[in-house]
Design a protein around this nucleic acid. Structure first.
Lengths: 343, 343
DNA sequence: CACTCCCCTGACAACGTTGTCCTGAGACGA
DNA sequence: TCGTCTCAGGACAACGTTGTCAGGGGAGTG
């Protein structure tokens, strides 16, 4: 910038004025400065600018996701990016892998980088650390799961309602013995979806059976193994509610291996690519990750722009998509057992 | 930091030394400073630190992808993140959407943020702009496609070999009329994959037919429409080579709609989740996006660490995964036509 | 005992930019 | 003509940190 000022024969401040399109610079000098910038291939240093500016904005936000490689996360990421792009803001991302210490670590790292705001899919059970870790004036938005111990805008899918709708859908098709495949119970959405499942059973006067609730599943492989085991039991379920997309895929694989994909009904929570091309196509409760990301980004930018109203909860509705696997009617028990037995 | 120095009754410089774990500070002062930091909840400002430091490192790299929401990109992203995490480096991402102007814009924006390095999936036909847009000492690595006009490390899949292998595989199963579904011809990988297809035909003494090469497809919907049209022609292909994952999915949908999924063979380039669960499961030439990301990040960090050897090309091999759709043998023409006619 | 050397600590400037304040020139009205 | 006002432009300090250098004191050596 010094060089530019020298070449253009003006002061540093005038170069700064031209770069920032400030008023009250004569057209002649503007042209001189512009051509000097061109000649020297000068690029302003945003770091130094941020340091000196009074608002200390970096025009960068941080996005802490479960895993950038996961389709739900990457759809959310894309929506946040699009919303940010419109404002000239860039996005720093990190994957948490359900590790609370990583959550703290990344929140700290991004705070030191002075991100203007944080969008977090919280992993730990306690986000009070954010109050000290993050600058007081840095807004935070929680997505997919609520944060604990820090009041902040929160964007959530209607997990209980969606899971209840899935379960009710199976009940409507005549099922009474419905298994529930749950993720780690420390995950908020996993608990809520299981609650929705239980509520729908209660509502229909069906007594929940512990043995039909398989908790603490996290990967497709685990789900596959447990479903195979489940269906080999003497009194197997006629339908399955899978509370997460990887688990749904595991269930599909298991049913395939047992040849029961047209016999045991299946509804999954969270849609996934190609669900409609499987045989049978998989009925799901679809979330709208793009809308969740957009909503979160909009809420964050409102805060960054100075909105100080009390934190709000945004509920993003889920949708039942009927595709076939959820509309199978209960098979006579004998048939199902015979089929499972022939494996 | 001033406050910390005052509370700990030491100079600024001593605080700086403690924060950076520099040697030659007495244990007593270290403890004082540490407790002052704790008491005041002080967090160093990485921006100011970068500004002053002699190496000017931000410990941040930029990653310009096709689209963070795309599975190939997000797998690559994840690998880059993992490699970076090990070094305490963070990742700024952006989606280019095949828009060359966006590529320039983001490269410029990330340069102004002083990213330590850039990993780019280049979109435009010309990357000479990088020579001026990016600081001379900022290393660049190209992934998935080569950059033009700037010598830099490049990580590429074996597109020609893979596409040839796919085509040869179909030929081996008796196919002679093999369609090739290509992406935009301005995309490097699309051209190379088509080259591989043509090479395999030539090698087998089969004359390529223009009418069987469908270019300029980019979305699943476009591919689906064109495949349906293709199979309604009087002289339809008995096999399809789809040169990209979205196109493969479009082809699967088209074959499904025509009821030809067990009649017309299909091999796709680039694997996709659940390809193994479709009916028939889809034979693909799998890329290894994670290895590509890892390789690119490692190359970038080597440069950041001062490696000045001439730029290298890294070829990441592809693998044929036989799953069923690519092993179908040609149906008698009459049968295929009748089936297509019954739609 | 004097001298050197090393260890610890702090003062100061500088990184690249912008906020604040000041000056001078010209325009305008009384 | 004079005072006042506005605009263009510059000088300077400051943002939060670290590189450089210098100084003081204690230990070791001849």
């Amino acid at each position: 910038m010094n060089d530019v000022a020298r070449v253009a024969r003006v002061s540093l401040k005038t170069v700064s004025r031209v770069v920032n399109n400030e008023p009250n610079v004569s057209p002649v000098l503007i042209a001189q400065v512009r051509s000097a910038i061109e000649a020297l291939n000068y690029r302003p240093d945003l770091g130094a600018s941020t340091l000196r500016r009074s608002d200390r904005r970096t025009e960068t936000i941080a996005l802490l996701l479960k895993d950038v490689g996961n389709p739900f996360s990457s759809a959310l990421h894309r929506a946040v990016e699009d919303e940010s792009r419109a404002r000239g803001v860039h996005v720093l991302t990190g994957s948490l892998d359900e590790d609370p210490s990583r959550e703290r670590e990344l929140a700290k790292a991004f705070t030191m980088r002075r991100a203007d705001g944080l969008i977090i899919v919280p992993v730990g059970m306690d986000q009070t650390y954010l109050a000290t870790e993050v600058r007081a004036d840095t807004p935070v938005v929680f997505v997919d799961r609520p944060g604990h111990g820090l009041p902040a805008d929160t964007v959530l899918a209607t997990n209980v309602l969606g899971a209840a709708e899935a379960t009710r859908h199976l009940i409507t098709h005549g099922h009474r013995r419905i298994a529930c495949l749950s993720d780690y119970s420390r995950i908020f959405t996993a608990r809520h979806r299981q609650d929705g499942y239980l509520a729908a059973l209660r509502e229909a006067g069906i007594e929940a059976e512990c043995r039909l609730i398989i908790p603490e599943l996290h990967t497709a492989a685990e789900a596959e193994a447990r479903v195979i085991e489940l269906l080999h039991r003497p009194d197997p379920p006629t339908a399955i509610f899978a509370s997460q997309n990887l688990i749904t895929v595991g269930a599909v694989r298991a049913l395939r291996r047992l040849g029961l994909q047209h016999t045991v009904a299946l509804v999954g929570f969270d849609d996934f690519p190609l669900a409609d091309l499987l045989e049978p196509a998989v009925t799901v409760i679809a979330q709208d990750p793009a809308l969740m990301g957009r909503t979160a980004a909009q809420a964050l930018f409102r805060r960054i722009d100075g909105d100080t109203s009390p934190p709000a909860d945004h509920w993003i509705p889920t949708t039942l998509i009927r595709r076939g696997s959820g509309e199978l009617i209960p098979a006579p028990r004998a048939l199902a057992e015979r089929l499972a037995g022939t494996l």
